[in-house]
Design a protein around this nucleic acid. Structure first.
Length: 375
RNA sequence: GGUGAGGUUCCCGAGCGGCCAAAGGGAGCAGACUGUAAAUCUGCCGGCGUAGCCUUCGAUGGUUCGAAUCCAUCCCUCACCA
C-alpha cells in the first residue's frame, strides 16, 4: 500500500489523496460501505459493482465465526469468495468483541469471548486476529483494539487505551515479520474516549510504532456532538500527515465533512445502509422519511439531483408503497440510493478540495445537514 | 325451513356483572438508528378543557347501585342438515 497526497485545502486541513493497493486505487477522502459478512446488506454483487466503491469494509469477527477460516481458505480468500475484485478493509473484531458480547474477559494476552451465534468460547489475540485477516486476504487490516463505550470513566478508558497500545505494538511487530506491506497493510487505532490528554498521548505513542495508516476509534458511539468534534479536531492533526487517517464508524454526512475538514481521509459507517433499510434516505435537500404519509402520491423522484438508477426510474410514491408493502425491493432501492448518495457526496468533497472550493461546499452542506444531522 | 356458532373500538381478535376506553396482533402515524446479533427498535393510536368528563362493544327495550358482559325481541353473518 502506498499513500500519496494530491491536494490540500487552503482554508482547512482537508486533503485529497490516493491509496494505491495491489487490488486498485482508493481515492480519498473515501467512504467505505460496510459488508460485515461478505455482502452489503440488501445488495446484490451487481449493485455493488455498479456503485463501484473504491473500497469496502468487512469484518474479522463475523467471518471468523461464520463461515469460518476453512471455508475462506478453500475459497481462496474473501475477494474470490464474494467475487469482489476491489480493495477490502477488514475490521479486527475488537469493536464486536467488546460491544456485543455479554461475556468477554480481557487479559494482557488477549480477549476471551462468547460467540453471538452459538455461545462457544473463543480467544482473540493481536496475532490471531492478523492471521484471520491474512486468510481473509484483506488489503488493509486493523489491529485488535479495545473499543470503549460512552460514557466511561477516565481510569477505565486509560486501561483500555494502554491495552490497545500494547496490542498495537505486538501487532506491528507480527505484521513486520510476516506480511508483505505491498499486499496487506495494517492500521493502528487511537483510543482514549473523550479525554483530551489520553487522546493526545495515545496518538503520539501509536505514531511511534510507525503504521502504514492510522484510525481514530471510539468516537460516534453516542457522545455529544461537541465532544465528537473536540476529539476529532484534537486527534487528527497529531497523526502523521503522510499516512492515511481513518475515522472508524463515522458516520453521518456532516460528521464526515467535519472530519474531512480536519484532515481525515477514510470513513465507514453502517448508517447509510441501516437507515435505508429503515426508511430514511439522504437527498440533496436533506434527510427524508420515505414512509411518511406526505409522499403518498408524490410522483417526483427521490432526489431530483441524484443520478442513481432508483432516482432515474421511480417515484417517491412508489418507493413509499414498496416500503409499506414490505417488499424486498424497497430495501434494495433504498440502500442503493443511500450508498450512491454517500459516494457522490465524497466525490464532491474530493473534487472541491482539488478545485480549492471546499469551504463553499462545507457551508452549503452545513445548511442542509447541519444541526439535524451532526449529532 | 331446521340445528348450531356468532356479531367488540380501521381490520383480526381477547374480554363474559364493577379493577373496561376495553388484552394482544395487524394496519396507520411520528421518531430513532454511526468500526451491522437491526427489513430493527421506541412512542402514539375513540373525543375533549386529559389525576376528570363525554361517546363506544349489531339494534331496541329490560334486570341491576353498576352491563361489552345477564334477560327479551328484532336485524345480520357463518357452518352443517333439508
Amino acid at each position: 500500500m502506498k499513500f500519496t497526497l494530491i491536494a490540500q485545502d487552503a482554508g482547512t486541513a482537508a486533503r485529497a489523496g490516493e491509496i494505491v493497493t495491489s487490488r486498485g486505487t482508493v481515492r480519498t477522502p473515501v467512504f467505505m460501505p460496510v459488508a460485515t459478512r461478505g455482502a452489503i446488506r440488501a445488495l446484490s454483487g451487481r449493485d455493488v459493482d455498479e456503485l463501484a466503491f473504491d473500497i469496502i469494509l468487512s469484518n474479522t469477527y463475523h467471518l471468523y465465526l461464520r463461515p469460518g477460516l476453512e471455508v475462506l481458505r478453500e475459497a481462496g480468500g474473501l475477494h474470490a469468495f464474494m467475487r469482489h475484485h476491489r480493495p477490502i478493509l477488514t475490521d479486527s473484531g475488537g469493536f464486536q468483541v467488546f460491544s456485543l458480547s455479554d461475556f468477554c474477559r480481557v487479559s494482557e494476552d488477549g480477549v476471551e469471548f462468547r460467540s453471538t451465534h452459538d455461545g462457544s468460547l473463543h480467544f482473540f489475540t493481536p496475532e490471531k486476529v492478523l492471521e484471520i485477516q491474512e486468510v481473509i486476504g484483506s488489503d488493509i487490516m486493523m489491529v485488535l483494539d479495545q473499543c470503549t463505550d460512552y460514557p466511561i470513566d477516565a481510569k477505565r478508558s486509560r486501561e483500555a487505551m494502554e491495552r490497545t497500545l500494547a496490542w498495537a505494538a505486538r501487532s506491528r511487530l507480527a505484521w513486520g515479520e510476516r506480511f508483505d506491506p505491498e499486499v496487506q497493510s495494517l492500521f493502528g487505532i487511537v483510543q482514549g474516549s473523550v479525554f483530551a490528554d489520553q487522546r493526545r498521548e495515545c496518538t503520539g505513542r501509536l505514531a511511534e510504532l510507525s503504521f502504514p495508516g492510522y484510525a481514530v476509534g471510539g468516537l460516534s458511539v453516542g457522545e455529544p456532538k461537541e465532544l465528537y468534534r473536540d476529539m476529532t479536531a484534537l486527534t487528527l492533526p497529531l497523526l502523521p500527515p503522510d499516512r492515511p487517517r481513518y475515522m472508524m464508524g463515522v458516520g453521518s454526512p456532516m460528521e464526515i465533512l467535519f472530519a474531512v475538514a480536519h484532515g481525515a481521509d477514510m470513513f465507514d459507517s453502517v448508517m447509510p445502509t441501516r437507515i435505508a433499510r429503515n426508511g430514511t434516505l439522504y437527498t440533496s435537500e436533506g434527510r427524508i422519511h420515505i414512509k411518511s404519509s406526505r409522499f403518498r402520491t408524490d410522483q417526483g423522484p427521490l432526489d431530483p439531483s441524484c443520478s442513481c438508477y432508483v432516482c432515474a426510474r421511480y417515484s417517491r410514491s412508489y418507493l413509499r408503497h414498496l416500503y409499506h408493502a414490505g417488499e424486498i425491493a424497497a430495501l434494495i432501492y433504498n440502500t442503493h440510493h443511500n450508498l450512491h448518495f454517500m459516494k457522490s457526496f465524497m466525490e464532491e468533497a474530493r473534487a472541491a478540495i482539488i478545485a480549492g472550493t471546499f469551504g463553499g461546499l462545507l457551508e452549503r452542506w452545513g445548511a442542509l445537514y447541519g444541526e439535524d444531522d451532526a449529532r
